[in-house]
Design a binder for these strands. Structure first.
Lengths: 229, 229
DNA sequence: TTAAATTAAATGAACGTTCATTTATTTTAT
DNA sequence: ATAAAATAAATGAACGTTCATTTAATTTAA
């Protein structure tokens, strides 16, 4: 009986030949990023050790430096490969959507939650909030690659509703934050035990309800572009 | 001409005698907490070195351990001494308030912002979001001493509006989060450069407007406690 | 045989905490 | 009052870890 295979690095099927490890140049990066996302989300960027990522990915710390220049580079890659693609997908979904402004806004929030909130990606906002000030280059990357595009997406949905007279003519940059804030907080709460018992789905539906009626056009509203009375 | 007094620790007036330091048993703790809050907020808990706090407070690292058992204890003291008292103050203000439900909600949010958002204390939510999972005891302390009391405060304001028929009968625990989220995010944004150009006061007024109308009672609402039709 | 992939060990800086020692202040005894 | 004695504040160096990154040695695959 063989000893338990506790720290064998191979994951691919190995039949007869007992090799200590196998060369898997193409599979490594993905496995490293998978492990890194899990750990970054659970413990934060600083608190995650490169060696932990390595162990979770079935390699040694040294190996990681063959694929990524440094720890920051790992997180950038995680964002680039797993988060950014979903934004493109989201942009397409919105372009195809057919319905009212309020319906579009609800759709955007629910889709956002399905694609991020309900997945491991929900941990990234907390990560960036926590580490942005200590890793400015990381913050810049995230702002340009993720936030800017995500907010454009929300902005277009709100503008759509304003144009149809269903939302009041709020300042777009501010309104975007009003929509973004409760959703981002939901992701933060999901990845912290700050709010143990909260039913996030219930919360989100209430957010949608509140936003749609809170942003809704009202009798006395002046039209977009009009000057003060 | 004397050499510049670069690292002299004394802050009290010293006339002739050049002393390396003075004993200031009663002044030290406050100065240490002041410095600690600044640094914790700016850099996060983990990233703040005890020696940095010491230097900023005009003492040495060793001195800090005369007053606080460890780094976590410093943060607890900061919260206990600077944040918790403002909650008591807030509770009183609300008890005295005279006005409608929507007016009370707006008052609570503006007061909260004046007392926390506009001060250094605004950095604490970011701090807790960032470190809660790595310092469970700190998280528990914050949840019990700060969050629980703060949410009771919000809850009572919303309940007041529901009782007067001005707000619709939302689930209280969820509604509290709907109110809390955009304010907490404002504090987070204020302490990160995630949203560089945002006008937070404008944002907050829009949040208030949106919440009041979003939570507002509407013709078809069933009364609190009624069963489904 | 060789080059690329991977490991394992080494490096060096950082940091929370401890503690022996120094120094300022307070108390005591005269 | 005063000076010696006692107390307690504060220092600063050192310890013991931890951890990102580097380097050298090994293993694999072609």
């Amino acid at each position: 009986m063989k000893p338990e295979n506790t720290d064998c690095t191979e994951r691919c099927p190995v039949l007869e030949t007992v090799t200590r490890w196998t060369r898997r140049k193409d599979a490594r990066p993905g496995e490293i990023l998978d492990a890194a996302l899990d750990l970054f989300v659970a413990r934060g960027f600083s608190a995650t050790k490169v060696e932990d990522i390595a162990r979770a990915a079935g390699v040694t710390a040294g190996t990681i430096y063959r694929y990524y220049a440094n720890k920051e580079d790992i997180l950038k890659a995680v964002i680039r490969e797993s988060l950014v693609p979903t934004l493109q997908e989201g942009e397409q979904l919105i372009a195809q959507f057919d319905g009212s402004g309020p319906e579009l806004l609800a759709f955007v929030i629910r889709t956002w939650w399905q694609m991020h909130g309900a997945t491991k990606l929900s941990g990234i906002p907390k990560l960036m909030i926590a580490e942005a000030s200590n890793f400015p280059e990381l913050a810049r990357f995230h702002r340009e690659e993720v936030i800017a595009r995500g907010e454009n997406l929300i902005a277009s949905a709100i503008q759509f509703g304003i144009d149809r007279g269903e939302f009041r003519p709020v300042a777009l940059d501010v309104a975007v934050k009003v929509v973004v804030a409760p959703v981002v907080m939901a992701m933060v709460w999901k990845n912290t035990d700050i709010c143990p018992g909260l039913d996030l789905d219930h919360y989100l539906e209430e957010v949608i309800e509140t936003l749609i009626h809170g942003l809704g056009a009202r009798p006395g509203d002046k039209q977009n572009g009009e000057s003060e009375a």
